[in-house]
Design a protein around this nucleic acid. Sequence first.
DNA 1: GCCAACGTTGGC
DNA 2: GCCAACGTTGGC
Length: 166
Amino acid sequence: MTRAARRHWLLKTEPGEFSIDDLERDGRTLWTGIRNYRARNILRDEVKAGDLVLIHHSSAARVGAAGVGRVAGAPRPDPTAGDPASPYHDPRPSPAGPRWWAVEVEFLEKFPEVVTLGRMRAEPSLAGLPVLARGNRLSVQPVDEEHFRRILRLGRSSVAGAAAPR
DNA sequence: GCCAACGTTGGC
DNA sequence: GCCAACGTTGGC
């Protein structure tokens, strides 16, 4: 383990817009449309190529971690910000350089079942995970490596999981 | 659809 | 720079 250890993140998406299935189908995608400064700062300044990300479905029937991806390149200016045809178009001038940033994400795996927020909350070892905090709206969030591993384990074992509600 | 929590805007 | 009003997010 080096000091420059790979970091782990959670990326929110509304599956009605873009889901883990879409990412699996496409193989990779440019993760655009982040329009919050705190999320932007994390994306632009901290996310590195090779970092692993949980793909998190929000505003969905099953809210939670749906799979895993990997950051496939350095963050770059979000092209949708300058595209009048995009719902994420931001017409404001940005004289000091790009305001919004995006990053390429490649598909790694889809969990057999979404690891729901309820499932995560039932897991004492996931205490402190930012996405579980009340009122947390950040669309790019850090995830501890240990938390990441535990969610991965939950996701991979969810079919065989004993406590899956029907 | 409700509504709590958060973020942004804008008058002062 | 304060802060109230407004808009958005997002779980439920």
